[in-house]
């Protein structure tokens, strides 16, 4: 049965998981800031070893493709590409926020909307809004949160806000009874792997060479300034 290695490095949590035919075999989470570069690859080796597998057992690598920390996404994506190239394994990209929504859905009643949030500094978050069956209500976006955010949903729906961007929004959004804030939720490769198995079954693979993380924002560099003394 198909073995999928999943990699989640879009936040400070470095998380990896092994699934066999969609069933979780093993996982590891390191909640240490700036540890990805050092520990991701040794962690994968360790997880493979302790699961009684070899790298050659891997049929596909699932990468949590973002949005999230650019550095984290770079490390995860480059490592995943290297593994795929060496093993001739397939690459599967999973939206980080969708995997988070999947992980939370089973703890929520079917009427409550899911809004995973990844911190993007100041009052900005990367988020989406999904129904409990993961149907997307509002697609992935970078959103600057103010009092009016989500008011269209909050008027007649409960929404669960979670992820490392959620708690800073509580004071601004915490009006009324419909907003539910859940702390301590980090993205997990366990959920990436579960969604990756669905994609694997449908044959939805990425082009390994050309795949890029889902940065969400184009990088706009400032144009060079004319030199004032000489200009």
């Amino acid at each position: 049965m198909a073995i999928i290695l999943s990699i989640e490095t879009s936040t400070k949590t470095s998380s990896i998981a092994l699934h066999e035919a969609g069933q979780l075999m093993s996982s590891q989470h390191i909640h240490v800031d700036k540890s990805h570069s050092e520990y991701l690859t040794p962690s994968i080796k360790n997880l493979i070893d302790t699961s009684g597998l070899t790298m050659k057992s891997i049929d596909a690598v699932a990468i949590s493709k973002g949005p999230g920390s650019y550095t984290g996404l770079r490390i995860g994506t480059s490592t995943a590409k290297g593994i795929c190239y060496a093993l001739d394994a397939r690459l599967i990209g999973v939206n980080t926020l969708e995997a988070m929504a999947y992980g939370m859905a089973k703890f929520m009643d079917s009427e409550t909307l899911l809004c995973p949030m990844i911190d993007a500094r100041r009052m900005e978050v990367y988020c989406l809004v999904a129904k409990n069956d993961l149907e997307i209500h509002e697609p992935t976006q970078a959103k600057v949160i103010d009092e009016t955010s989500f008011s269209n949903f909050l008027a007649d729906h409960k929404i669960a806000f979670f992820g490392n961007g959620a708690m800073k929004c509580e004071e601004v959004l915490g009006h009324g009874k419909n907003a539910l804030f859940i702390g301590g939720i980090d993205p997990s490769a366990e959920h990436v792997g579960a969604l990756a198995w669905q994609k694997f079954s449908k044959g939805e693979f990425e082009d390994t060479a050309y795949f890029e993380p889902f940065y969400l924002k184009d990088f706009i560099a400032k144009k060079p300034s004319a030199n004032k003394l000489v200009g």
């Binding site: 570069s37 991701l40 690859t41 994968i44 080796k45 790298m55 550095t71 770079r74 490390i75 995860g76 994506t77 480059s78 490592t79 995943a80 590409k81 290297g82 593994i83 795929c84 190239y85 060496a86 093993l87």
Partner: peptide
Amino acid sequence: TVGLSYAKGLALSLQ
């Protein structure tokens, strides 16, 4: 980071 992470992925997989 990009080159080194890719290199590690290769080294790990090719043993």
